[in-house]
Write a protein that binds this DNA or RNA. Structure first.
Lengths: 218, 218
DNA sequence: GCATCCATGTAACCAGTTACATGATTTG
DNA sequence: CAAATCATGTAACTGGTTACATGGATGC
């Protein structure tokens, strides 16, 4: 069972990796930055958080540390600040349940992100959105898999159209044509990403994303 | 609840409108002609058929009386069915259960097709695919609604990007950019369809919105 | 005569939705 | 102090999925 393909949990973990947040904030942030890609309703977000908490992937923390200008280094193990921070979020804090990601959560995030069995459009977009947390081999593999999948789909559609023994209704033809165009455009985009990825592999040093990843794993 | 916007049922009815079919055939046909747009699994198709039958929207018929225009290789099956069938139930010669659409089904199809509350991408594509069964006013309304929705989405995304107080991860930016491009392309396509629809309507005295837009374009 | 398609269905599960229920805090 | 917004959650439902169970027909 590829039960690890829960996109929402992946996104929650990905956002909590950046900074501690409570549910409401999480959703706001989600729609603000990823709104075009995906969205979540309260009825899915809170249960997702509860599931993650039950797994030990996230845990409630007392307060949110100030938005770090510099990536934190020593946040592990030590108690988070018990004191109120003067310049914190726009609203005061009570009743809020601020979540932070745990080591288990980080591991789960990586596992979900690297889980190859994801195939659908949205899942791909989400994984790609967090692709700076993957190593470039995995990234490349994901891109190539996606390309192959689309290619296969297009080919099979063309095959079906050729051997078709029936007349398509006019609007079906229209929609199909548009979908084919979209597929081509997606394909071109992915090919471009693959090319970029490949060329950047040949100059492995000074890769921002890699160094970020290294930082994350510390 | 039964009035829901069930895409699968809509498609089933739409296909049965063309010709009588049994479940297996239905699915084959579905993936052959609409494969890029949607797909169904056995576990969803057969229950959908059962639901439609329970509603009286489809019923099992003996053989396929069918559409004479489209040459089919299924005449052999028809012969056999006629041969074996005398007092038997609607369940055909083999174990096949050939379905036909009823008047109720036709009405349901129209109702679903004209149901405005549909908003998501797939639902739109499917409705558009069967848009030759809508009258052109409804078609136009659907197209405009879709255009407005995408427009709104793009605007809101742009708004969020402007006021953003956080740094987007690099790949998020990348994916977002692609989604924005896709939205633009969709938008252009829909505008084109709208224009075509308007020009083919040629009933200037009735539709206020059309005349307004025509004025704008002058 | 055995594999492979054709053909129909059920059961368990899954990720998500809408609608509901509740209450705290801020602001005009 | 009322309205809006912030904030968290539950319940019932929806529209699917995969895996399973079964068996007839075809073809090699």
């Amino acid at each position: 069972m590829a039960t690890g393909t829960n996109s929402l949990e992946l996104v929650v973990l990905g956002l909590l990796k950046e900074q501690d947040m409570h549910g409401y904030e999480l959703k706001k942030r989600m729609t603000e930055s990823l709104g075009l890609i995906m969205h979540a309703s309260w009825g899915s977000l809170y249960p997702a958080l509860a599931r993650l908490e039950a797994k030990g992937a996230v845990k409630a923390v007392e307060a949110r540390p100030a938005i770090p200008n510099i990536p934190m280094t020593g946040s592990l193990g030590g108690e988070r600040a018990v004191f109120r921070l003067s310049g914190e979020g726009p609203r005061g804090s009570r009743n809020k349940k601020v979540y932070g990601i745990t080591d288990i959560g980080s591991a789960l995030f990586t596992a979900m992100l690297n889980n190859d069995s994801e195939i659908d459009e949205k899942g791909f977009a989400i994984r790609l959105a967090f692709a700076n947390h993957m190593d470039s081999e995995k990234r490349l593999k994901m891109l190539r898999d996606r390309r192959d999948l689309i290619l296969e789909r297009v080919k099979s559609s063309r095959r079906n159209l050729e051997k078709k023994r029936f007349t398509l209704e006019p609007y079906v033809e229209l929609v199909l044509e548009h979908f084919r165009l979209n597929n081509s455009s997606d394909l071109a985009w992915i090919e471009e990403l693959i090319a970029k990825e490949e060329s950047s592999m040949q100059t492995p040093e000074t890769d921002l994303m890699v160094s970020q990843e290294v930082q994350d794993n510390l």
